[in-house]
Design a protein around this nucleic acid. Structure first.
Length: 940
DNA sequence: GGGATCACG
DNA sequence: GACGTACGTGATCCCA
């Protein structure tokens, strides 16, 4: 029976799944006999996830999972080298190929492979047949070789990335439509598969040529007309090779002896078959999860808990079970004191409650409370509306308080004792926000757990820590988007304008989801051995940061305003000069226009276009031009600096001054950076200028209150010190122990020159190498940074590794660790996950460098977090009144009465320099330097 | 809304 | 054999 138009056929690229599962997951072996099963586990999770996702309207009527039969296919008959250079599959993957086919069958899915053909050919054949019958076809794969099939009824989807690959995406990748993809592939070749193509021609050039000549045959016939001699020659000389390449990349959509289309009709998984397979594999989590969905007991004899290597919180654990129960219509709306008291009673019975606040703004310093939601168990949640308004809320239509709400004061009076009760655990997603809002209503929430931070401690780098991301990952549930309530753009309203009946399901759902997440994430702390990370470096930081943010920093508005005017004047002068030099007026702030002036109109050399087709005009480009004696780019550099300072700092900072406090209150994200660093937003006070003289004037506008000074303490070379410790580099450790100038010492070591009377240039180069090492050094990067030939950079690096072989060992070992366990660790046990570490090509290099950097940057971040948590109590104990205001990665800024400044500096220094203890004894001392002054520039 | 640019550690 | 690469962030501007 042929395919019918109402059919929907899913063709899963099983071989692609295998390699993804294998590389994405840490090695995992079966407990009982040590059999490697990591890829099987990943494969099962992926298939299960896919089947779960395929329940709605687009549920397929037919499904097949297709595999490569062997590494040889008919293509080797006419081109023996095809895929010949590919290494054998890794040793621990080979035994899993068969198990994965078993797994496919255990899911009751057809498992198809045809000798002499690749999976892609089989997919092409089924796709063509089904599409011919009018059916819809979805290919589940990310393989570029399948993209030639896209179009019409045939679509493609990359489930791992959640990305649909349509004609547009194909066009983006190959520069031509699907029907010409094989032409481009034939020209460009493929080194991974050993498809020769035309030497010297890549995808970009191939697409260009194909688009110009229409198709490959025409191009080859008219190759003589090509203007570029190299391309012309390459095409003429290699015409035959190119034709072979085309045969190699063209999928055969006429594979014979395939199981009939009918046999692909979708069959539901059968509990017994699937569960016994999973149980045999000893995948206890997945077994339990799926058993629950089937509503049966998991098979007995499921052996001991899963090994350590199972990733973090086991995304999706218990997920679907809970998800089925999320019913946003089942929540209660609390409208009077009696109802609220009943909830408080329930909370006391349980001892724990999820809390979420709804407010008028995302800025906690000005946000007003609109409502509070509570959840005491999965599905048991309520919403307490407190500040909802009726009416449009436009300037004329006076808003009125909506009916059916408790008085705010009454609700606060009832909630406060519970929220402050030490015996009741409050659970929130991003508690810092709620803590700050409630603090303004006289409530100081404690004790608490924070689901965002529970996830961050376990899953940093594995995906976001936002509520929506967590809910999707762990509960397989998409919460109501806030957009559906507030709208977007010009017509966006504030939460107090949302009708209570609409607000309640959203708000209560947030508390419900938070509670469910907590149930899943809290136990993961122990399993993942990150309890200390969470308890010492995440959770206690929340109230500390809340206090810092609430304190804010005083800023001299008039000084900023004067600077703004000053900058504006200078910019106007520069702009006139620039227009004069260009011979016409244009927007200096537009890189596009500037590029055209420089390279098209004025004909300067070195114009390089990026992927958007615009010339690059970054500072490095302009500096090169300026060095060649061009005035215009030099002026633009000056203009840009002023424009940046004015636009980002002197103008913008003034708008951030809080009307009530007269100070600037930033907000720190605790779970923003994957390495453990904080990030500062609204405004970002971690990137206030300091490197240029003009920029430092802006720091002068950050001042202390009357009678106070600003006190700054910063860690000296903390990352290099930690590198010396982590990589165990004796020479570096000694240099630090002796208090030497570390860059000079490094220079002396690698270049063999004495520190005395050292050429500053030599020291500068050593400094660049030192930083480079922290970043996962490459000759390219160092050459770029120092503006020296790459060969020289390579020599420097070689000399460096020669002197410090331990560094290379550290780098290799770190990448190895990342590949093996899927994460790297700081010295304090913070885990940074590296899910893409096995990516091929440039991405792989990127990921490797990030993995090398993460333990160093992350350990430094841990150190200062530990210090920050201890400083407030240390100050209190010493009866000092200083307030901690800002953190800039390795620096802390305090506002302190002038008379206490020195004693505060010593107290803080002691905490900072001992922040690693007692958890970790460092073999390199930590050193903090202090400075004070009326403003930040003086203190720094 | 994405890319280019540039401020910081 | 070519390509693209220093690590981590956030804000602003232009421009489609």
């Amino acid at each position: 029976m042929p395919a019918k138009p109402e059919d929907h056929l899913y063709l899963v690229d099983g071989s692609g799944f295998i390699f993804r599962a294998y590389h994405a997951l840490p090695a995992l072996t079966r407990k009982s006999d040590g059999m490697p099963v990591g890829a099987v586990s990943g494969f099962c999770n992926m298939i299960w996830k896919m089947l779960q996702d395929l329940k709605g309207d687009d549920a397929p009527s037919h499904v097949a999972v297709i595999f490569d039969a062997s590494r040889f296919s008919f293509r080797n008959e006419f081109y023996p080298e095809y895929k010949a250079q590919r290494p054998d599959a890794p040793e621990d993957l080979r035994p899993q190929f068969g198990l994965i086919r078993d797994a496919t069958r255990a899911f009751n899915l057809p498992c198809i492979e045809i000798d002499g053909y690749e999976a892609d050919d089989v997919i092409a054949t089924y796709a063509r047949e089904a599409a011919a019958g009018g059916a819809e076809v979805t290919i589940v794969s990310s393989d570029k070789d399948l993209m030639q099939l896209v179009g019409g009824r045939i679509g493609m989807v990359d489930l791992m990335k959640g990305k649909v690959i349509g004609v547009e995406q194909v066009r983006e990748k190959f520069g031509v439509g699907p029907e010409r993809v094989i032409d481009v592939q034939a020209l460009a070749g493929d080194s991974v598969d050993n498809v020769p193509g035309a030497p010297g021609i890549g995808v970009k050039t191939a697409a260009l040529l194909i688009n110009e000549y229409g198709d490959l045959e025409t191009l080859l016939e008219r190759a003589a007309e090509i203007k570029q001699p190299k391309r012309r020659q390459s095409l003429i000389e290699n015409a035959e090779l190119i034709r072979i390449s085309k045969r190699l990349v063209t999928l055969d959509d006429n594979v014979g002896n395939l199981p009939a289309y009918d046999e692909l009709a979708r069959r539901q998984p059968e509990a017994e078959m699937l569960l016994s397979f999973l149980n045999e594999m000893e995948f206890s989590t997945l077994t339990r999860r799926i058993a629950a969905i089937f509503g049966v007991e998991p098979p007995a004899a499921a052996p001991a808990p899963e090994p350590e290597a199972v990733p973090a919180a086991e995304p999706g654990a218990e997920a679907a079970v809970e998800a089925a129960k999320i019913d946003t219509s089942a929540y209660e709306i609390i409208r009077d004191a009696d109802a609220l008291k009943a909830w408080i009673e329930k909370i006391y019975e349980r001892g724990e409650v999820a809390v979420d606040t709804e407010t008028t703004s995302l800025d906690e310093m000005t946000a007003e409370l609109v409502g509070v939601s509570l959840a005491t168990a999965p599905g048991r949640a309520c919403y307490i509306p407190l500040g909802h308004q009726t009416g449009d809320g436009d300037l004329l239509g006076a808003a009125e308080r909506a009916a059916g709400q408790m008085a705010l004061d009454d609700a606060i009076a009832i909630l406060k004792p519970m929220l402050e009760d030490p015996s009741i655990l409050k659970i929130a997603q991003n508690m810092k926000y709620d803590l700050k809002v409630l603090a303004r209503y006289g409530i100081w929430v404690a004790p608490f757990d924070d689901t965002m931070l529970l996830s961050y401690a376990q899953e940093a780098g594995m995906g976001g820590q936002g509520m929506d991301a967590l809910s999707k990952r762990h509960l397989d549930h998409e919460p109501i988007p806030i957009k559906t309530l507030l709208g977007a753009g010009r017509k966006k309203i504030t939460f107090d304008r949302v009708e209570i009946d609409k607000a309640a399901p959203y708000a209560a759902e947030d508390a419900d989801v938070t509670f469910r997440l907590w149930k899943i994430l809290k136990p993961g702390l122990v399993r993942n051995r990150v309890t200390r990370v969470y308890e010492v470096m995440e959770r206690p930081l929340v109230p500390v940061l809340a206090d810092m943010e609430r304190a804010g920093v005083k800023v001299d508005r008039d000084a900023l305003s004067r600077l703004s005017n000053n900058f504006a004047q200078k910019m106007a002068g520069l702009e006139a000069e620039i227009h004069e030099l260009a011979g016409e007026k244009f927007n200096v702030g537009s890189p596009k226009q500037l590029g055209e002036i420089l390279f098209d109109k004025m004909g300067m050399d070195g114009g390089k276009k990026g992927k958007t087709g615009a010339y690059a005009t970054g500072a490095d480009v302009l500096e090169t031009l300026a060095a060649e004696g061009h005035d215009l780019p030099a002026r633009v550099l000056d203009w840009r600096q002023l424009s940046k300072l004015k636009g980002t700092y002197t103008d913008a900072l003034q708008t951030h001054i809080n009307a009530e406090t007269g100070r600037v209150h930033t907000s720190y994200s605790i779970a923003g950076a994957s390495t453990g660093r904080l990030a500062s937003t609204d405004p970002n006070l971690q990137n206030i200028p300091v490197r240029s003289e003009e920029g430092r004037r802006i720091r002068e506008a950050f001042i202390a209150d009357e009678g106070n000074v600003l006190l700054s303490l910063d860690y000296s070379q903390i990352e290099l010190r930690l590198l010396a410790h982590i990589a165990d580099i004796e020479a570096l450790k000694q240099a630090f122990a002796e208090g030497q100038d570390i860059h000079a010492a490094t220079a002396s070591e690698i270049f063999g020159v004495p520190v005395e009377g050292m050429d500053p240039m030599i020291r500068r180069q050593a400094k660049a190498i030192n930083f480079g090492v922290i970043y996962g050094i490459s000759a390219f990067g160092l050459a770029n940074n120092l503006r020296i030939p790459r060969e020289d950079a390579k020599r420097f690096i070689d000399a460096y590794f020669e002197k410090f072989p331990g560094i290379r060992a550290y780098m290799d070992a770190t990448v190895e660790t990342a590949k093996k366990q899927g994460y790297v660790e700081t010295v304090f046990g913070r885990r940074i996950h590296t899910p893409e570490i096995n990516a091929k090509g440039p991405m792989g290099g990127f990921q490797r460098r990030a993995a090398i950097n993460a333990p160093i940057q992350g350990s430094a971040a841990d150190v200062i977090r530990r210090a920050m948590v201890r400083i407030p109590p240390a100050l209190a104990k010493a009866k000092l009144t200083a307030r901690m205001l800002l953190q800039v990665h390795d620096e802390l800024i305090f506002e302190v009465p002038e008379s206490e400044a020195d004693e505060t500096a010593e107290t803080v220094r002691k905490v900072m320099e001992g922040a690693n203890l007692p958890a970790v004894a460092l073999t390199t001392p930590l050193v903090a330097d202090a400075g004070k002054g009326r403003n930040w520039a003086e203190a720094h």
